[in-house]
């Protein structure tokens, strides 16, 4: 991978800098919307190989986003490592932006894992709740 560029998106841009949090936002919207849609369509009560269908969907949506996030974080890491103060950039814009991007990728990663945690743990507590998926048991009637 080229450290400086992903398609039209360069490490040297404000959009790259906040890309981690854009992915966090996309994930947050999707996890909320898919959950709502699943409930509306009655998927909450369906099982898939012993797992709650809704939880499988939410995790399946999360994985590619996390991979994309890690890929971008790696790009930021490379950009940060290779950036030095050059005559063209005496004030260090490039290292600053790469480091900020990397920190933002890190906090976004934590944020995604943290927000998805209830989905994972809901599966773990399910046997305690009479074998029903938690998302189903607690739906408003």
């Amino acid at each position: 991978m080229n450290a400086k560029r992903l398609g039209w998106l360069q490490t040297h841009s404000l959009v790259w800098m906040v890309s981690g949090l854009i992915i966090w936002s996309v994930h947050f919207v999707l996890i909320y919307v898919l959950q709502a849609v699943s409930c509306a369509l009655g998927w909450a009560s369906r099982d898939l190989a012993g797992l709650s269908f809704i939880n499988v969907i939410l995790v399946a949506m999360t994985v590619p986003l996390v991979l994309l996030l890690l890929y971008l974080a790696w790009g930021s890491w490379l950009a940060w490592r290779s950036s030095g103060r050059t005559p063209d950039d005496p004030t260090g814009v490039t290292p600053f932006m790469a480091l900020t991007a990397l920190l933002i990728h890190a906090i976004s990663f934590l944020g995604i894992v943290w927000v998805t945690w209830p989905v994972l743990s809901a599966r773990l507590v399910r046997p305690v709740l009479q074998g029903k998926p938690i998302s189903h048991r607690l739906l408003p009637h």
Binding site: A36, C39, I54, V115, W117, P118
Partner: peptide, 17 residues
């Protein structure tokens, strides 16, 4: 307000984050 609990947990997590 009676929103599904799984959804509440996302917002609780973000509120802590």
């Amino acid at each position: 307000t009676g929103i599904p609990h799984l959804a509440l947990s996302f917002f609780s997590a973000a509120s802590l984050a």
